[in-house]
Design a protein around this nucleic acid. Structure first.
Lengths: 417, 417
DNA sequence: GTCGAATTGTCGGGTCCCGCAACAAACTCA
DNA sequence: TGAGTTTGTTGCGGGACCCGACAATTCGAC
């Protein structure tokens, strides 16, 4: 969420951008790590005490940060005042249009969640307009419940489909039944909040969330796998989301792993998700009539009673899952692989065969250094990521925070936790 | 090759680093785009005329850049002096330890190649020490032939194997027959030039070379495929090499695409390179006794005479190649895919079935925007990349150019063309 | 051939931003 | 209560860039 100003390639950099960078660095630290003493900030950033004081002063003037008395008993010496973000100084609306549910949250700087609601929804039955209408109605009371003094700075949207970052155009969302939908425009018009709308793929935002506020702590290279109806991936490289040329990167579900495999919805044959996806799992377990959360719950129920067909289905699916993960480890050499989405709850049952398969496929050098863990944010990871996405504009350029940013957010600002 | 100082995450930035950044920006432009007028530089960087003059002055003091009279007939107004790099101001030794050959080049700033030599070598017959000895002997006359005033600033090495960036430790180089070799140390000791040695995987350096000086012009997201004995990939994302946690990223040859496939040398089964690699091609064409350049030449000969078995082998291999490329397009969403290595010369024969297969596998959104082209640097891409790698330290921090940098280069400095 | 327009180098001054050093403040521990 | 330690505060200085004014140089039109 920082340094973007300095990364505009090939451009010179003036003092003004330097200031922006340092403001952003301080704010990002406070946003991610919570309240921190001034002296701690100075240490971590390498900036001088006086500079830190000045920067915090400016952030306080912008109403993004406030200082409180420092904690006592911290050793000898003058106590350092503790700075913390003001959630109401920059709040965002986070939306998620997922396969089996829609969700809304109001989130303030620092990751403070004011309110959050998720509603189940049958698959593929609604037009984009209907869905946006429904989610807007969910959002309205949450917006009304925000503290009076809050400053709304943006809207972030996670959507289960292939979406263009620049304008929120949805090329394909097979599980929502959409194709070529200008979703960004629709959301912006319906909400008419006069705020920038940023939109991104669910898995990409899930990876962002786990990286910044979840299972990715201390790691710079993360691979996040989201098993919903299909399989999506979000990739963090060097602490930055890997988006590809147009933001379509990470469509790992449609990589072919079995030329002799079944037909996939995408038109291809033997895609990874036809072997390791939800439908394959349901088929193997003999419960093809179930989907989504209901499927997961039923499988867990049967697995705990020791149902052999279910256990076998989980083992086989885990094996295919591991094969794909092994492939991705060879491709990306991540520090950590975070398993989210439906697989999050099924993780204990998939783990054994999955790990074995990973070990078989991954080369020793990248394989040994990659740690595989379930996510810690569960189903809410994309929603948290949508909030982070919307907040990123303020964090990248705190000084511009007070202005109004209408229209569609032009570029996603990556982070550098 | 720039801005690295400003991308140290979470750190504050002082004015000194800003200066380094701008020096680096100017030098990188000149290094990549060749001679340029001052006014042009000012326009492109967005820096003020006076600032550009000052920066160029400093670079001239460092003997990295010189100014000449501006070209005439450029329109009205005072002519702007043209700045250009001085190749002898920063020269490097580039080495390549490839599967079927070893190569050496002496290269100066701006990409000026003083001398270059490549020697064929049978596969897998030499110890690391022997190979380093041989390549050192190749290098000595080239170093001796450098102009007297030259300033040697580093050594770059491309190696056909899984190599750790930090110290040049080779985990595995199956086609060289090596395993767990501290190659960085061996090279550094044998050369004993007192210069930093940077080492990286051949495919990664090939991608860097094609991106900066080859088929990647104007593109920020590049996927480079090198078919040698195996298949390696180098990935450029947002203009930066994607290296992974330890620099092992891009081992795409050992992703599994056919669970029913043949045994691979890596111990696995159905790896991409067992289907699309050189050995598979030779087997299908019935010339398993041939390898490397000899194989390529023989296949081209037979193909031009219309030999049906050869043509069929190329078609089938192209299909498998396309399948893997389609997978990678779904994963990375590149602007351009550059095909190098052995496949470079065979490209015309592989193209048709390959493209068809890509179109079948790649999703429409990322697929339509990805352009597939043969490389323009041919077999020398990794060697050129090794030179770029070695030069990157000077380009990133021109002011430190005059000092001596013994030992092993600590970090690879990515580029931002 | 001369003059005006356009473009760019050069130089001095100003601003912004950060680091530094000295001092004051506030806390801990003996 | 006083010494020691850590940190905030303040004024100063330097580095780096921008700006404006002026000079230099070229092109093109008359």
């Amino acid at each position: 969420m920082k340094e973007s100003a300095l990364r505009q390639q090939g451009r010179g950099v003036a003092a003004e951008q330097l200031r922006r960078h340092n403001l952003s660095t301080i704010l990002d630290r406070l946003h991610l790590s919570g309240p921190m003493s001034r002296s701690e900030l100075a240490q971590q950033t390498g900036l001088n005490r006086s500079t830190v004081a000045d920067l915090i002063g400016e952030l306080a003037t912008l109403a993004l940060v406030e200082e409180g008395p420092g904690a006592a008993n911290t050793g000898p010496g003058r106590p350092s005042p503790v700075a913390k973000v003001r959630p109401e100084g920059a709040t965002v609306l986070a939306l998620e249009l997922s396969v089996d549910s829609i969700a809304v949250a109001t989130v303030g700087l620092g990751g403070h969640i004011y309110n959050q609601i998720r509603v189940a929804r049958p698959r593929g039955r609604f037009t984009p307009e209907e869905t946006v209408e429904d989610i807007s109605k969910l959002a309205e009371p949450l917006l009304g419940a925000l503290p009076g003094a809050h400053q709304l700075v943006g809207v972030g949207v996670a959507v289960a489909g292939v979406v263009r970052r620049t304008d929120g155009f949805v090329h394909l969302a097979p599980n929502l039944g959409w194709r070529n939908v200008p979703l960004g425009t629709i959301v912006e018009k319906r909400l008419s909040l006069g705020q920038a709308v940023s939109m991104a793929n669910e898995a990409d935002l899930g990876s962002l969330a786990e990286y910044r506020r979840g299972a990715g702590s201390g790691v710079q290279h993360l691979l996040y796998l989201a098993g919903e109806a299909g399989i999506g991936a979000g990739i963090i490289q060097e602490g930055r989301p890997m988006l590809g040329a147009a933001g379509y990167a990470g469509e790992v579900g449609h990589t072919r792993v079995n030329p002799e495999g079944r037909q996939c919805r995408c038109g291809g044959k033997g895609c990874w998700e036809t072997e390791a996806g939800e439908a394959a799992l349901a088929r193997r377990a003999g419960v093809s009539d179930l989907i989504g959360q209901r499927l997961v719950e039923e499988l867990i129920l049967r697995a705990t009673t020791g149902d052999s067909r279910t256990l076998e289905a989980l083992t086989v699916t885990g094996r295919w899952l591991g094969l794909g993960i092994g492939n991705l480890i060879n491709i990306f050499n991540p520090d950590r692989v975070v398993v989210g989405g439906s697989y999050h709850d099924l993780y204990p049952y998939l783990e054994e065969s999955m790990i074995r398969s990973v070990q078989e496929v991954a080369l020793s050098a990248p394989g040994e250094s990659a740690e595989i863990v379930p996510g810690v944010l569960g189903v809410d990871a994309p929603l948290v990521g949508a909030a982070e996405l919307a907040l990123s504009s303020v964090i990248t350029n705190p000084a511009a925070a007070t202005g109004v940013h209408p229209g569609f957010a032009v570029d996603f600002v990556d982070d550098g936790g």
